[in-house]
């Protein structure tokens, strides 16, 4: 990504949220939603605009599991690893996902654990990009991934 473009986008997002009390999280969400991640070089820009230290901004970015500082793969897969999903074979599903994704080209998928998607009565669950899927079996997962592969 072009540094000038990043700078311009970040400036635009900061301007949208700058005056909100506790603006840092909305700013970081805004940047990640727009660029897909929070580029390290934007830390200084954010800290200057919000009158924070670079350590504070860096600290917040790294504290929260949701924020990423490297460009994401084309698709994100969040597999729920919490108790309700475990009780319905969630660990087997997670293993299957890891194996299946391993076979594929790197850079195409990011797999992350997530602790509860709120679909606990229809476990196990996972989220591919922003789309939720419940009662996922390994076979259903393969179908979802194949459908994704068809237009990626």
């Amino acid at each position: 990504m072009n540094p000038a473009f990043i700078h311009q986008q970040v400036a635009k997002i900061i301007e949208q949220h700058r005056l909100r009390p506790g603006a840092l999280l909305p700013v970081l969400h805004g940047i990640q939603d727009e660029l897909g991640f929070i580029p390290s070089e934007s830390v200084i820009q954010i800290s200057l605009a919000l009158n924070l230290s670079r350590a504070e901004v860096h600290g917040v970015i790294t504290f929260y599991h949701h924020f990423h500082t490297t460009p994401p793969a084309r698709h994100s897969i969040q597999v729920c690893r919490a108790e309700a999903c475990q009780s319905m074979g969630g660990e087997n599903l997670a293993e299957h996902v890891a194996q299946r994704i391993d076979e594929r080209a790197a850079g195409l998928y990011d797999v992350h654990p997530v602790y509860c998607l709120g679909l606990c009565a229809n476990a196990p669950a996972l989220m591919i990009d922003e789309v939720l899927h419940a009662r996922v079996t390994p076979e259903k997962f393969d179908r979802l991934i194949n459908a994704l592969g068809a237009h990626s």
Binding site: E83, C85, Y115, C116, G118, C120
Partner: peptide, 11 residues
């Protein structure tokens, strides 16, 4: 911030 596994009433 309904983070507990097994809960979805808030949602």
């Amino acid at each position: 911030d309904e983070g507990d596994s097994g809960t979805f009433a808030d949602r």
